[in-house]
């Protein structure tokens, strides 16, 4: 049987969800019997191949135009898209900035924090991704098939969901597997 192919990427994120993915430890080794990792932020190949993949995992919220493009490309190229982590599912920590104006946030981050050197400016290069006024969860940008909340989701939850999907079963969130924060 051909192996299932899996891609992952991160958007506005602290990378903790990918750490939790690695935390599934020996389950990862078992999964690799039936899953082939194609692109991830921690492999050489960073982008899902044009010919597509079976499962895509996105962590993090959508905060700027670049992240929206990454999300849409992943959606186009995978059959099943998993939104993983509180930021991706709800907006999470990233959405804390939604209680402020985006320009206010930029000014504070680049010019006003205690650790900012005097004379710093907000970078305005057109090459830099444009910050959206509000942080959005992934589902506001693309269609999502499965949600794994958690900050980060526990390794057990991730292992369970991937194992079920690989086995062709429908994962069901109950009890300890469903946790926020």
């Amino acid at each position: 049987m051909a192996k299932l192919t899996l891609c992952s990427d991160w958007l506005d994120v602290c990378s903790g969800c990918h750490m939790s993915l690695l935390d599934i430890d020996e389950v990862l080794v078992a999964l690799l019997d039936s899953v082939q990792l194609l692109s991830t932020p921690i492999t050489d190949l960073k982008h899902p191949p044009e010919e597509g993949a079976d499962i895509g995992i996105l962590t993090g919220a959508v905060s700027n135009d670049h992240q929206e493009a990454v999300a849409k490309r992943m959606r186009e190229r995978v059959k099943i898209l998993i939104s993983m982590g509180d930021c991706s599912v709800f907006g999470g920590i990233c959405a804390m900035r939604n209680f402020f104006d985006a320009e206010q946030v930029l000014q504070y981050a680049y010019t006003e924090t205690d650790s900012t050197a005097p004379g710093q400016q907000v970078p305005r290069s057109p090459e830099i991704a444009k910050l959206y006024p509000k942080v959005r969860p992934l589902r506001d940008v693309v269609k999502v098939d499965y949600y794994i909340p958690g900050c980060p989701p526990s390794a057990n939850t991730i292992a369970y969901v991937l194992t079920e999907l690989v086995a062709g079963r429908e994962p069901k969130w109950t009890d300890e597997l469903l946790r926020y924060g």
Partner: peptide
């Protein structure tokens, strides 16, 4: 957002969301 709330783990709203298996929020915010 539970991830930065001091009540997470003791919250009656959160407990109900777990019980009714809310794995995401349906409505725009």
């Amino acid at each position: 957002f539970c991830m930065f709330c001091q009540m997470s783990g003791s919250c009656e709203l959160q407990n109900l969301a777990y019980k009714y298996e809310l794995d995401h929020w349906q409505f725009n915010r």
